[in-house]
Design a binder for these strands. Structure first.
Lengths: 254, 254
DNA sequence: TTACATTTGTTCGTATGTATG
DNA sequence: ACATACATACGAACAAATGTA
């Protein structure tokens, strides 16, 4: 390790050890699925204390290269650090890229059989029952229309639907607060579609105008679908931007 | 800490210490911007060794609640763990959600003054010069057209453009390999736009057809724009899906 | 600028607990 | 039941960075 030779490495020992182990994994000496040498082995080979060896191994865990389990050992799980990219947001509200303060003007509510047009969006049939909300999302101040929304709320949370004409902000947020559930995952699909007649009318578009259809499915940690929303935006006003950043971090547990 | 009382806590000591500190930060006892007690303080208060205190503090670092600096102390940077959402991808290729294996058929290359139509996409003028590629992206096997692409390559990497009629896969990847740069950030903007005539022709669409215009700017770690690509997709075939997952992780350094 | 006390970083040693196979 | 291997926890010492007198 060149502790004090002419090519002395002044980096911490644990870092040097981690570097060697990382290189070995990258070279294929310890392929994913195999075990890394034990702490004692590392102590012996590099002539460091167990503390130092553990510090080195911790770096490999942080890099997503190994997993450690008491009694079992260190399992190699990747050859190289997963240099993934991520689009992060502090709040789900950043998914909706329109004005922060919006209101949903409820046009109709009911308990419809979802038409075939939106069946795919809701997903498989046996999710239980749904309560539908049809509405128009407006900028709260200027009342400028943003999108036409068709929202299907899981019947478990149907109470949020009753007797409201206005919903300030996002519906998922209200459900989170009222029922104490947490949205753990959102699937979003963007595509271009002909505006439904009622959407075109509400948005002040021609009857045959195209629009952007954004479908979002909100799931809790157990995978239960909380709400599905389908939002039609006028094509000429639609913009969707995102920024992906490189991250040294390991990918999600998925 | 109830080490052995009737309400003994069998969790590790460092976890108990971390929990207390976390609660104090959450309560506002140590607001962001202030210093957490020193290691010695924590050792004294909880009657634990320095090792245990450091292990506890490490948890707070991992949770994104504090930052530590040698010689300075532990700075509180957040009241609560940032429970953000993230859309992660292992490779940038997942940004393009079309068939994995595609080829860009180059239709024309040159060194144009970018028209006013795309000036905004390229960004501010003094980025240096650009080399343009006009092409059609096809599924490699079936030769099915995917999108019409207008690509502006930073002149520093213009070599990739010379004398090619076909580019397999994404261009950014070729630049990464050839020049040893790394894409650190990508900005993407999706909007609906009328197809340019040449795009409509190449994609087999009507002359006045609408399409989806996806602009991507690739930046390296220094913020230099490597390439800008503008891709027009036929509206009826365009789909863009993404999945956001809740993460306990701290937010990016941005 | 220098000198010094403070605080975290690194590294050793040692011992015991606990999950795994 | 037992050996193995990682987890937790104590103690001690010196190094390096920081802030201040």
């Amino acid at each position: 390790m060149n502790a004090d030779g002419p090519f002395a490495d002044d980096r911490p020992r644990y870092q040097q050890v981690a570097e060697v182990l990382r290189a070995r994994i990258a070279e294929g000496l310890h392929p994913p699925g195999t075990q890394l040498p034990t702490e004692s082995d590392i102590c012996a080979e590099f002539e460091v204390s167990r503390h130092t060896a553990r510090e080195a191994l911790r770096r490999l865990v942080d890099a997503g290269l190994i997993q450690r389990r008491q009694g079992s050992g260190s399992l190699v799980i990747a050859r190289e650090a997963q240099q993934g990219y991520a689009h992060t947001m502090r709040s789900l509200d950043e998914l909706f890229q329109y004005a922060a303060d919006t209101t949903l003007r409820v046009l109709a509510t009911g308990r419809p059989l979802p038409g075939p047009d939106v069946a795919d969006d809701i997903g498989t049939a046996d999710e239980g029952e749904w309560v539908a909300i049809e509405g128009l999302r407006l900028e709260t101040g200027t009342q400028a229309p943003i999108c036409f929304s068709l929202i299907f709320v899981n019947a478990d949370f149907a109470d949020v639907v009753t007797e409201i004409a206005q919903i300030r902000g996002a519906i998922y947020r209200r459900i989170e607060q009222r029922f104490g559930v947490e949205v753990a995952e959102v699937e979003q699909m963007i595509r271009v579609d002909k505006l439904p007649p009622e959407a075109a009318r509400a948005l002040g578009q021609r009857g045959r105008a195209m629009g952007v259809r954004v479908t979002r499915r909100y799931l809790d940690a157990a995978g239960r679908v909380i709400i599905v929303s389908i939002n039609w935006h006028p094509a000429d006003r639609f913009r969707y931007g995102m920024r992906m950043r490189r991250e040294g971090a390991r990918p999600g547990r998925g």
